[in-house]
Design a binder for these strands. Structure first.
Length: 574
DNA sequence: GCCGTTTTCGGCCCGACTGTTTTCAGTCG
């Protein structure tokens, strides 16, 4: 049984939690947390690095952690973790993640009251025992009880468009407050992550502007978590936490940079600053007590000798090195996109008609839209058979003769059967302009079979594009067990495009995978998989995810004009 | 536990808010 990277990360995070509860060296704890993240974001299975003996080349992984990773891969467990678990009661780590508790207080609860589970904590609070502990009080006890009722210890992240809805509305509200200058959302939202845990909003305003008061009295606010002169946190009724920070104009760039993160990126850049005798905080870049930068992000990064780095890249995944060397990619933009290569109509499971989809695409200024309805095997989608596709092709031709700016491409999203064969006959495939293939069943095949299945489909001469390559659904289903590197290489070899699917719960390939695919030489297609006219707007999410994967315009097929796109598809079929 | 253009030892990013305290620890981001 192969050990997933996520499993290694999980075990390391457990070690970090337990070390924290023991009051261990904070930097040792951070080393485990950092290693967890590094392993989690590796584009290839960590097992491969174990075989190549190249683990210690990873940043933040030295001899010791490399050995522990090797142990996990070989045995599935980690002895050091077992030893820690004997010293710290299980469950205390869960307790530690309740808002308001940290390692110290969780530990105190256990040492004095024997509390090590959430129900025990609940009972102890209700019995008024917690308030008597040193460092606790009546208010802390009440807050804990409240936290347990509302949220427990689980972190919940929302999909990016959901965060966008609430965040953009709140921004409009804040901008309407008199005296407020700039207002922007920073944090992982600005970095365009696929999910958002909380929103960080920054504003500038004149002295005496009651922006914090107005913020906490926003109608959607359910609960005020903190309220100070420059900072406040609230929880909205939808459950989303929002932090507001008030900045002076002179430090706006520094604040924006600081609160955009990521944490790992910030730490790495501050380390560079430190070597230059500088200090970076949210108010600026400082040499001693003198502020040498802060008004703009360009100034802040410039002060440590770096060019501005797009927020999407700030994950400490090589962007700082690239910035130093002047090799940052020029990322693809929404405006570069000339058409959409996956869409559905009422002929299968779409909610809008062929004509409606065409007009909506024209409205967006597209040159082309591929109509790619499902094939029969996807029963829930009411897929078309060969006769159905023939009829649709005729209607597309008729529509094309009436459309002036847009060309509809005759396509299909062909189901890849479990044996790797395609769910549509070769003659029909040949007649189509663009053939997408994708997996909609048998998600649980073992890696060998799943890989064989997908590779067989990619080798079919008519296939142009692999749609939602991993099949993941954010928060609901992990990706297929498939050897992605082989998929990328085979796609390159056979001229098959790899999709970055813009559906907010797919975003598949994701950022890390897209980056890995590009490294293998792949060409991507960013498409929306729209099942209604409004979903053509999902292009925004797809482009963002591609940008997070370091994608440039020339590596995206649908930034090409129609003629060049068709040439590319045609070349791939040989 | 990691790491090296000050270092193989001694550093490791930084500040705000809360609630408990009478000057600060703990938590959070």
């Amino acid at each position: 049984m192969p050990v997933e990277n996520a499993e290694v990360a999980r075990l390391f995070r457990e070690v970090a939690d337990l070390l924290e509860l023991q009051g261990a060296n904070p930097y040792r704890i951070r080393a485990y947390q950092g290693a967890a993240r590094t392993v989690e974001e590796l584009p290839q299975p960590v097992e491969e690095l174990v075989k190549q003996q190249s683990l210690a080349e990873l940043p933040g992984i030295g001899e010791d952690l490399a050995g522990k990773i090797q142990e996990i891969v070989n045995t599935g467990t980690l002895r050091a973790l077992g030893e820690l678990e004997r010293k710290v009661p299980k469950g205390l780590a869960t307790l530690m993640h309740v808002r308001g508790l940290g390692p110290k207080r969780a530990r105190a609860l256990f040492d004095s009251l024997g509390v090590h589970t959430l129900p025990q904590l609940d009972r102890a609070c209700r019995a008024g025992k917690v308030r008597r502990l040193p460092g606790f009080g009546v208010k802390t006890e009440a807050n804990l009880l409240h936290e347990l009722e509302v949220h427990g210890a689980e972190e919940h992240r929302v999909l990016r468009p959901v965060a966008a809805q609430y965040g953009e509305a709140l921004l409009r509200y804040l901008r309407s407050v008199e005296g407020v200058g700039r207002a922007e959302i920073a944090g992982s939202y600005r970095r365009c992550r696929d999910t958002v845990g909380d929103l960080d909003i920054l504003v500038t305003c004149g002295r005496g502007t009651p922006v914090i008061r107005r913020f906490v009295s926003y109608p959607e606010v359910e609960e005020v978590l903190a309220e100070g002169p420059t900072r406040s946190s609230v929880r909205l009724r939808c459950g989303l936490q929002v932090d507001l920070r008030v900045l002076a104009e002179a430090s706006y760039g520094a604040g924006l940079y600081y609160f955009t993160g990521s944490k790992a990126h910030n730490i790495a850049v501050r380390r560079i600053a430190q070597k230059k005798g500088l200090r970076i905080n949210e108010y600026g870049v400082w040499r001693g007590r003198r502020r040498i930068a802060g008004r703009t992000e360009e100034q802040v990064l410039g002060s440590v000798g770096l060019p501005w780095i797009p927020p999407e890249l700030r994950e400490n995944r090589g962007e700082i090195e690239a910035a130093r060397q002047g090799t940052l990619p020029s990322l693809v933009e929404r405006a570069d996109i000339r058409g959409d290569l996956q869409s559905h109509t009422t002929d299968s499971d779409g909610r809008d008609t062929l004509a409606a989809m065409a007009h909506a695409a024209e409205e967006l200024g597209y040159e082309y839209l591929a109509i790619t309805d499902h094939t029969p095997a996807v029963r829930v989608a009411g897929g078309l058979d060969r006769a159905g596709f023939r009829r649709q092709m005729k209607r597309i031709e008729q529509l094309n003769s009436r459309l002036s700016k847009l060309t509809l491409l005759k396509g299909a999203e062909v189901d890849i059967r479990p044996d790797g064969s395609l769910d549509l006959d070769d003659a029909t495939l040949d007649a189509l302009d663009v053939v997408l293939v994708s997996v909609h069943s048998a998600f649980d095949l073992a890696e060998r079979e799943q890989t064989r299945r997908v590779l067989r489909a990619l080798r079919h001469p008519s296939v142009d594009l692999l749609a939602h390559p991993t099949g993941r659904l954010i928060g609901r289903r992990g990706g297929l067990r498939v050897d992605l590197e082989q998929v990328y290489r085979t796609a390159v070899e056979h001229g098959v495009l790899l999709e970055v699917n813009g559906q907010p719960d797919r975003l598949d390939l994701d950022d890390v995978a897209a980056h890995a695919a590009l490294a293998c030489g792949a060409t991507l297609a960013i498409s929306t998989d729209a099942h209604a006219t409004a979903e053509l707007g999902f292009m925004r999410w797809g482009v963002e995810q591609a940008r997070r994967g370091w994608t440039t315009k020339d590596r995206v097929a649908n930034t090409r004009p129609l003629e060049r796109l068709l040439a590319l598809l045609h070349a791939g079929r040989r």
